[in-house]
Design a protein around this nucleic acid. Sequence first.
DNA 1: GGACAGGGCAGTAATACATC
DNA 2: GATGTATTACTGCCCTGTCC
Length: 261
Amino acid sequence: LPDQDERAAELSREQNEKTIRSTQTALRNFREFLISKYPSETREIYVIPCKELDAYLASFFVDARQKDGSEYEPNSLANYQCGLERYLKEHRYGYSITRDKEFKRSQEALKQKQIELRCKGKGNKPHKSMKLTFADELILRKRGLLSRYNPEGLLNLVWLNNTKAFGHCTGFHGSTLKWGDIRLRVTETGLEYLEWMGPDNGDVNAKSKRGGTDSRVYATQHSPQTCPVQDYKEYAQRRPPAMRYEDAPFYLSIKPVVNLA
DNA sequence: GGACAGGGCAGTAATACATC
DNA sequence: GATGTATTACTGCCCTGTCC
């Protein structure tokens, strides 16, 4: 299947690009550190003998700071070590800075630094996403941030419903969702439901392979106030007619009303 | 406003270690 | 040796800030 091959190749290229970028960031930061601390050291790192490179790395892990002078997160330092390892491997350096005993000093320095940073309260994943609880949702509803009765609340509501219902599905990307990607349908018994059409764009065979019902969310007739289908219908009704074609973006930005008077 | 880079972190594979 | 669990390494996503 040429389309699938092309997609796989594209994905692979994209993945490689990201790895390269990550490696380059590690290399750039390490080089900048070397220049600032050891201005006479101008060699490429892959030609530096292991003993010297080990000392430089140990110094880097202990003293390196972000551009604003603050400490790195423990995992970031470990990521830099891996990035440098990839770069050295690429240039056929004879040692592994993460495994070989010749780099024990820098490995120990990194370990100690990570412990020290954790003691200082770093490494607590400050940007980790938090699970939205039922209680949180209730608060957001009370504050009108999840609501059918104001544009921002309605937009938040459909985004949350879609994420909860389809976020686990392979290929579901909220940011690129199109209006035609989610369809309102009715079962034989008259129960309404929303269905995410998926990347296969309605291919029945592909859908049955996925399991069928995992890309659906049904109306909650017993609780119309929190029914995702009712939210969707309200949103559909409020969308400008010009934005109701299949390829239109699902989420629309809200234009504030400006009083020029 | 778009493109890009930096930084933090999550997901997954590989590896090491423990238990049966 | 087989299986389960923990740790480490690798890769790439996402958010934010900066620059043009």
